[in-house]
Amino acid sequence: MLFLLILLLSLIAQLFLPWWSLAVVCFLIAAWKARHGGHAFLAGFGAIALLWLGAALFWHFASEGILTERVAAMMTASSTILLFVATVALGGLVGGLSAMSGFYVRRALG
């Protein structure tokens, strides 16, 4: 439930708002729904990682990956796979940490 809510609402947020809006969504929803810290982190990480992976794959294939290769070369990554991994890990980390913070803050507030 937590996972699905984050997935849906942060998708909508990112379509219209800057990238960091996902952190706000994760924070609030985890504060509302998460059962414990680990649950919040995993749901936030998983949902955002999936959203970023899906969108990255979509745009990559939609443009035959010309730019993915150039950016990978620019960042001295040996392959485009690394660029996907970095993207997914970074999105997931921000999602997971903000969800976890949301849960801890709610618990602190009682």
Binding site: Q14, L15, P18, W19, W52, A55, A56, F58, W59, H60, L67, T68, V71, A86, T87, L90, G91
Partner: peptide, 9 residues
Amino acid sequence: LSPYEGFWR
């Protein structure tokens, strides 16, 4: 890196 606003687009 965000695929919603970054270079992926």
